[in-house]
Design a protein around this nucleic acid. Structure first.
Lengths: 215, 215
DNA sequence: TAGATTGTTAATCGATTAACAATC
DNA sequence: TAGATTGTTAATCGATTAACAATC
């Protein structure tokens, strides 16, 4: 797949939502769904859903719809959730601990091997069975343990330094919670969780909801 | 501003980023910036930046650019950051504690008055000076304390119940961290932070980066 | 004034919606 | 078979980019 036919980011960002609802349906024992029913669940139009899915193949069947389990599994593969990833967390404060404690990530295949911090009060502690180590050991640890994803839950002042260590260590995917835009090599993927921006957006809509309600 | 000329959500979601960079510039003592320089910082095109800002007024000056402090202040007003908000957090686990501990939110005007949980092991504890109370007291507390924003950091199973209490108590803005889409009245604004979806998106791009790099 | 840069219109591009033939 | 629903093309809509006159 070259640039010409790569799938747009807006489509990709809808896939996890399909995946989540399909997982819910499996748990409810439902094994068939139409684009129209999926539309009701997700809020995307049926047309959009069919378009989105057809970027990756014809998963449906005319007159029937989609097999829930099959589609869930296909989307899992597309999203790369059919394998496991070794991750580390830099920043052992509450946010780092929250991520480390969240079992949903491990169930989805994202295993936190270790956490790192520079504050001695954290070093040596354990979150579940995950040890908090000195950040000075991070580079070696990543190289020795096949770590693919680096998570950043430090204050923004340290975020770029951590990113630099991650990249030097060979990490290609960074999940960044610090409110900063990190500079990284072209072949490194960054996904930002900018909580400030999210909160400020809420604030905007709270103050302007009359313009958007029933619009 | 009616439906016809309301500003699109894609524009709104860029505003916090402008706001953040302008704050950085103020701290650096820079008091003037052109759309082109702001483009370099943010990654949006200069044309887009001028279009975005002109949705709200002509903040610039031909031949000069934008006054940093003035633009920052205007964007702050637009985003509703020129006032303060009372908030509460439902869910006193790590994520709730992380939000409660994050001083950046308070500096931006979002004050956490209390946290609520149903687990007795949390009730009575304090995060900074924020008390964790029994969720049964939540409705009364919200009504008595002018709470405008409700934050949800519970597991997904409780999220809808919490949202229902929030709405019953008169809250109009919900910041939801649970991996669920909440059903709320039309006049209630929800901003979701879906960490799963973010992580899965990272996973997709990590597995398909060859298609997107240098694209 | 001359140079710079905005505000704004027009052109382009991309994403969403509508429609329907294909087909299970 | 008849009914249902996909896959896919065409039409529409909206967002981004380009261009330039206005103006500081």
């Amino acid at each position: 797949m070259d640039r010409e036919n790569r799938v747009s980011i807006t489509v990709i960002r809808r896939l996890p939502k399909y995946y989540r609802y399909l997982g819910d349906l499996i748990r409810k024992g439902i094994n068939r769904i139409s684009s129209q029913e999926l539309s009701k669940l997700t809020g995307f139009t049926a047309s959009q859903i069919r378009q989105d899915l057809n970027n990756f193949g014809g998963f449906g069947q005319q007159g029937y719809g989609y097999n829930v389990e099959e589609l869930h599994s296909q989307l899992g593969k597309i999203l790369g959730l059919d394998k496991t990833y070794n991750t580390v967390i830099a920043g052992a404060g509450n946010l780092g601990q929250a991520v480390a404690n969240y079992k949903g990530f491990e169930e989805a295949g994202f295993k936190v091997l270790a956490m790192f911090d520079k504050n001695p009060k954290f070093i040596g502690l354990k979150i579940r069975d995950i040890e908090i180590k000195d950040v000075d050991e991070m580079e070696d640890f990543i190289k020795e343990n096949d770590v693919e994803i680096g998570i950043i839950t430090t204050p923004k002042e340290s975020a770029q330094d951590i990113a630099d260590i991650y990249i030097k260590s060979g990490i290609k995917g960074i999940w960044n919670f610090a409110p900063a835009d990190l500079k990284v090599d072209d072949d490194v993927v960054i996904e930002n969780v900018h909580l400030n921006e999210s909160l400020f957006t809420l604030s905007y809509f709270l103050n302007n909801k009359q313009d958007y309600v029933r619009g």
